[in-house]
Design a protein around this nucleic acid. Structure first.
Lengths: 317, 317
DNA sequence: CTAGGTGCAAATAATTTGCAGAGGC
DNA sequence: GCCTCTGCAAATTATTTGCACCTAG
């Protein structure tokens, strides 16, 4: 696991000079959760006793943004806030206009649509900001904001695992069904093998999930952080439905390839996008897993096609 | 069609007094396209010769926002911009960081996902802001920004018509197919009737579309403003697929009801959300149309069930 | 007559900058 | 020693406010 100082070292721009004051500011900043306004960071620094000029803090914040250590966010208050990116994936915000608190979430589905729009408009998107303004639960019911904070990283890992587990489950169902209806003995063996792999991996993922919950039992109760519809009615579920309406061996392989490819792409693309974190690792590992399955299926498909060709040419002779 | 002054009159807050200066500012503001910073409006006013204080312009902008005549938007420039809402639906923005131009778009799909997220989090959403930052086509190719501006209202109407037409087309296909496979004579008549209505209405919509293009022939070439996937692989298309896998009369009615209900809801909900405009009208008219079909199908379904019940009890006797 | 509306100048608020001096490599 | 970092105070930018005056209803 990457530590905070490694994270900073990695991003320290070349040609820059080390400075105790800047290091101190960065360190204090990284200790914070949530979204700090520049002024609030000034107060924090002052409270920790160092007499550091306001200008230096502004300059350091800009330095961190350039280095990719911090992100500048605008909640429409007329001033900027900053959040660090160390173990903190990019995300969107729900902003309560009553208590001014902000809640984070992420939606692959929305990100995918945003990408589609940008592409349709030939727009080279670099960053997208989505903010939902309104009133949070606490403020709606008049209750005091007794916020239970769980670090975004843990929530991200939790949801990454949930999605991976759901995908494995539906993959397992898919391969089980595919094995049942495949006529060719060799094909059946491949699907069985894949079903077993899914089952085994499912067990591993579930163990990891239990581990995560053991570390922080409150985690289960927190609202969804990562929204992804594919998890519920995803690729494999659609694939299973396709199989249900009758399919031959070749089709089953093609459907499997489509599913694994989609799944691989999702986990890879999303995993790549994140800062170093447990959630990122889960996604990338899972992407690799799916990639292997994909390769296996493609090899198998090629083999099937070869055998068919051979049969045809034998008949012709 | 509602005029600009009617639009303002409607929203003038009670207890407020009339003032020539404010009226003048509002009038100049409504004449503009795009997103004005307060300062730019000051310049415009000065250019049109009135000597009006900067403070008055700020106050009038705030007044317009409160009245719902203007919307305050934040492009992360450190200052606010304003856009008027007269014949200008709510929308999202693509913002080019190179030329600082902004492009508008709307996506029902994204809005629906945003609503889902807010609901899942028990968050009472009042407004959502989506901004995609990056580089626009012109700036990518180094070309000068020779922006062809079409008023958003016209683009909105164009896309509303395109979506309505696509929906009609797939509705027509659905009812034609349903009529073909319905055994019951009465049911067949209903589906034929609906198919005819769709065909007729389709003709009307297409005529309206041609009319719109005649007014501004460049309109066709502009990029999509309103993104809605339902248009392409929408409800009726799914319904038609459902029918294809064999269905009886009752099922056909139920599928039809599901499709019309979804369609009605989409057009109604979206239409309601907009400021007075051609696009709004198209949506609401279409919603009514779908509502009528829905009612007809429901009546027909009830009738079918009644007849089935009667048959069963006759047999029992 | 009276509650808004307006102008002007000053205040505020967040952030940036110029410049002289301090300090890392 | 050079070049970057820092502090301080002044500047800048966008916006708001206090207050005297104006004006529509």
């Amino acid at each position: 696991m990457q530590s905070a100082s490694e994270f900073i070292e990695q991003r320290r721009p070349a040609g820059g000079r080390r400075s105790g004051k800047r290091d101190f500011i960065v360190q204090v900043f990284l200790r914070q959760e949530g979204h700090l306004a520049a002024d609030e960071l000034v107060d924090l620094i002052r409270a920790e006793d160092a007499r550091i000029s306001r200008a230096t803090i502004y300059r350091t914040l800009q330095w961190m943004v350039d280095a990719g250590i911090a992100r500048k966010v605008d909640f429409g208050e007329g001033r900027y806030r900053f959040e660090h990116s160390y173990r903190h994936p990019r995300h969107f915000h729900l902003i309560c206009k009553t208590c001014n608190q902000s809640y984070e979430f992420l939606s692959f589905d929305i990100e995918a649509l945003v990408e589609e729009v940008a592409e349709a408009r030939n727009f080279a998107a670099r960053q997208s900001v989505l903010q939902i303004y309104g009133t949070c639960v606490n403020c709606q019911s008049g209750r005091k904001a007794e916020r239970v904070t769980a670090p975004t990283e843990a929530l991200f890992a939790r949801d990454a695992l949930r999605i991976a587990i759901a995908t494995e489950r539906s993959g397992l169902e898919f391969y089980t069904r595919a094995a049942a209806l495949t006529g060719d003995a060799r094909g059946r063996r491949v699907f069985r093998k894949l079903a077993n792999e899914e089952k085994e991996h499912l067990g591993k993922l579930e163990a990891r999930y239990r581990e995560l919950l053991a570390e922080d039992p409150t985690l289960e109760a927190h609202p969804t952080f990562l929204f992804f519809k594919g998890a519920a009615h995803g690729l494999f579920a659609a694939g299973t439905a396709e199989l249900r309406q009758g399919a031959d061996d070749e089709q089953a392989l093609l459907v499997g390839i489509k599913c694994e490819r989609g799944s691989h792409q999702f986990f890879k693309r999303y995993g790549d996008r994140f800062e170093e974190s447990e959630g990122k690792r889960i996604f990338l590992e899972f992407a690799d897993e799916e990639r292997e399955h994909l390769d296996l299926l493609i090899r198998e498909y090629r083999n099937l096609v070869e055998r068919q060709k051979a049969r045809v040419s034998r008949k012709r002779r």
